[in-house]
């Protein structure tokens, strides 16, 4: 029996090492859920596992520490940005604030020495790539997890220099989440800032704005800011393409977001550009048609 076992093992090893396995991460949308091998393996647990992978990626970013609770099961406090610095405060003995005033507990003391608890992040490309397998799994297993998709795209294009892969992730995410205007926005940012492809950025920002319109009331601070910026960048992209009329329209929509007394430098910049365009041939033509 032993020779047979060894033979199987050797063949497995040879098979495994003879081809690049990154193909496993090249996700192609199945035509139906029933064709998706992951769905067939995991069923409805697939999304849960995907979300767990996203949490795992975040833990990896923090050196293996989970944000929500520390290893003792004590909740970490969270700031508005979602970043918890208070909970990482420990005294010199490694005691968390919850221990202050309690009876000495040698078991807890050892636990705290064993577990690393200091706040840290991955730094540099060499370290930041370590999160990628979990981010890739997260977006793959739960294609409706917008945070996972956005985060994966961000790390790929923004930190690891893989712009095209980041675009792929977002394009895939948009296809699976047609109403997710934030993904279009992020894609537009990549085209605008990384690729300087203003034709695409304009199209994508416009799509983002179209999807988000009517949902402004439900937006949080971050999303509102992105919505406003999408208008400006759409306008700027169109402006760079020489489509002054359309650019003007979006500049004016953007101006509507600023309050009357607002002295934000961007407002002044937009107003100046609007005046320039309005006095130009195409801009004047545009105003005549609109009015």
């Amino acid at each position: 029996m032993m020779p047979a076992v060894l033979l199987i093992a050797l063949l497995s090893l040879a098979g495994v090492t003879s081809f690049k396995v990154h193909e496993a991460f090249k996700y192609e949308l199945p035509e139906a859920q029933s064709q998706d091998i992951m769905n067939r393996l995991m069923g409805s647990a697939q999304e849960m596992v995907g979300d767990a992978m996203f949490t795992k990626a975040d833990a990896y970013f923090h050196g293996g520490l989970y944000k929500q609770k520390d290893f003792l099961g004590e909740p970490r406090s969270e700031k508005a940005e979602g970043h918890e610095e208070e909970a990482h405060h420990h005294d010199e003995e490694g005691h968390a604030p919850s221990e202050e005033g309690g009876a000495p507990n040698w078991i807890r003391w050892i636990d705290r020495q064993i577990q690393a608890t200091e706040h840290r992040h991955l730094e540099g490309v060499d370290e930041e790539v370590e999160m990628l397998p979990f981010l890739a799994l997260a977006s793959r297993l739960n294609p409706n997890n917008l945070s996972a998709i956005a985060t994966e795209a961000y790390w790929l294009e923004g930190r690891l220099g893989r712009v095209d892969e980041g675009i792929e992730v977002l394009v895939r995410g948009i296809r699976m989440n047609p109403e997710a205007w934030q993904l279009d926005y992020q894609l537009g940012m990549i085209y605008y800032m990384r690729k300087e492809d203003y034709a695409r950025s304009a199209a994508v920002f416009k799509e983002s704005i179209r999807k988000a319109r009517g949902r402004e009331r439900d937006m949080g601070v971050q999303d509102s800011g992105a919505f406003e910026l999408a208008h400006y960048l759409a306008a700027d992209s169109l402006d760079r393409l020489g489509l002054s009329g359309e650019a003007l329209e979006f500049y004016r929509q953007c101006l509507a977001f600023f309050g009357p007394g607002s002295e934000v430098p961007l407002k002044g910049k937009i107003e100046a550009r609007v005046r320039e365009l309005a006095s130009s041939g195409e801009g004047a033509r545009y105003f005549r048609e609109v009015e």
Binding site: L13, V16, H22, A24, D126, L132, A136, L156, L160
Partner: peptide, 16 residues
């Protein structure tokens, strides 16, 4: 060995 052969986005040095 299988797990170590997986390349994510052609990054070879992912080890954690």
């Amino acid at each position: 060995v299988y797990a170590s052969q997986i390349e994510v986005y052609n990054f070879e040095n992912i080890v954690r």
